[in-house]
Design a protein around this nucleic acid. Structure first.
Lengths: 298, 298
DNA sequence: CCCAACCATGAATTCAGTTCATGACCGCAA
DNA sequence: TTGCGGTCATGAACTGAATTCATGGTTGGG
């Protein structure tokens, strides 16, 4: 019994259920002619006439009836079984460990996972603000919400949030002590808390938009950190300016712990990305989360 | 369950049977890459991962195993059924020689062969009421319709008719001359035309049901015959009682040539059997007849 | 550490399935 | 008896899904 025959058998079944080629074709989404060719081809392969055709009537021959007698229960069982595993397959379960900053958790992650765990009671989500991208490779976390695209060749990053705006911030104490810059060029006279992710990687650029032009400032300062939380800590402590996405500094701005400068020079850019290791066997729960986050972006 | 999926399912089965995509591809006559695409497409359609792949090993997931558990018997049944009808459908042709009594021909054989020769124009059926079981072994006939099960070790008998009732009959002339028995015991005072099939075999029993008990009467008479037709001939001639299945004597009863006695004592028993030599290479036409007679019994 | 065997996948190819066009057949009504 | 409408059959033309090609990634064994 060859593979191509199997689809043809379901055409045979449709013909006998509908009673003519034309209606069977409608049901299957093909033309009457295609049905005719298909049945003819099947009969040639098996070497037996399966249908008697007269004008206005199609009936199964005895051989056809015998074949259909085996076909009906078999296809019914297979259809049922496929539906069962499809339904069961839609029951993701297990733990998904996500590392995400508090703002990303609040703005991007929480709206999605809140509904997800209602829809799929067997899924549990662990969210930690302390993880690092390197934790993904070491399987301490399953995914991370981060700004910008992926950095490692084996890591996948998909956008899951709207475009963002950067903010340059410093403590009131620092500003009182060192003055408030009114242009990005002035930052060259200030201390800036820089970031990079890998100790051997590039330092993150501070980009500004001056007279419609994108300008990258090469700055310096007392710290090069790899964690936005630490950048905030250092900025609050008066060690200089931090340059972070607006959501990440909003709480400090609201509380007055930090003040924003050069807002009119700050461009918008791609927002949060979901990062995960691009390996094969992602759990169904993780796949589900990835799909949901992608979908929330549209 | 759509048509295109069915062929893909047989690819899935081949992969799990062969243990890898490459060998499955060889079996199916397609490349390893085509197998990979096919499995991927099937998994996308169903929405469930069916196989775990690692280097050098492919195994079914739980969902895949469940699907395969339904797939295997279904495809086996379909494959067998297709092979059956293909075999039968190899345009059976030629002559099938059947020996059958007139009642068996009328009641059992005719309804089946009438349609069979329409379906298969190359098949011809010869029916003779003169044959004997011994003619099967000597290849003068291909099969026989007979009451009761087979007698020779190399002969096969399959039931092809409903249960029957025996009838004890005699001619009106005999009854007028010798009297009408009103109990099976009275037969001991009468002439009875006996039957057996092999000259060295046992004489056929005359069984009656008396007060709910089965009773075998040991009787005697002027003839021991091996053919029901001859028994009827003898009974019509007034030689005594015949003991035959009701269908075989119906015509004589209807015409008044014979009269039935002791009807309330006659039990029912297994009916007509199709007898044929149990050798291997039965012609396709004979196999077809056998299948049809078996099927007509259900 | 290297190699062989296997799977994955995007792009390109190909040919089997399908449509198109149209003829043949048949049942039914006028 | 004839005409019409509905259905099946089939060869030729078309097309898109299945398959191949090319190649990269992974992994187990030597």
């Amino acid at each position: 019994m060859d593979r191509d025959m199997l689809g043809d058998l379901s055409t045979l079944l449709a013909v006998t259920e509908e009673g003519n080629f034309t209606r069977a074709g409608h049901r299957l989404g093909i033309s009457q002619s295609a049905v005719s060719h298909t049945i003819r081809r099947l009969e040639d392969k098996i070497g037996v006439r399966l249908l008697n055709r007269s004008a206005r009537k199609v009936t199964a021959t005895d051989a056809g009836e015998q074949l259909l007698a085996a076909l009906r229960p078999s296809f019914q069982q297979l259809g049922n079984r496929i539906e069962e595993i499809r339904t069961l397959g839609e029951r993701p379960s297990g733990l998904v460990r996500v590392t995400s900053s508090a703002p990303a958790t609040r703005d991007i992650l929480w709206p999605v996972v809140s509904q997800l765990v209602r829809d799929y009671p067997d899924v549990r989500i662990e969210i930690s603000s302390e993880g690092r991208l390197s934790d993904l490779a070491e399987d301490r976390f399953d995914c991370a919400i981060r700004l910008g695209e992926h950095l490692s060749p084996d890591m996948i990053a998909v956008p899951v949030g709207p475009q963002l705006e950067m903010a340059a911030v410093a403590s009131p104490e620092y500003l009182a002590r060192r003055g408030t810059p009114d242009h990005p060029d002035a930052l060259e006279e200030h201390d800036c808390i820089l970031m990079r992710h890998r100790s051997d990687g590039p330092v993150y650029d501070w980009e500004f938009e001056i007279d419609g032009e994108d300008v990258v400032k090469k700055l310096s300062g007392p710290f090069i950190l790899n964690d936005p939380g630490h950048v905030l800590t250092a900025a609050r402590a008066g060690h200089g300016f931090g340059y972070l996405p607006l959501p990440e500094v909003r709480a400090d701005l609201d509380s007055g712990r930090l003040r924003r400068v050069l807002a009119e020079f700050c461009p918008r850019f791609d927002g949060y990305h979901l990062c995960y290791m691009g390996r094969r066997n992602l759990s169904s729960a993780l796949r589900l989360l990835i799909e949901r986050l992608k979908a929330s972006q549209s």
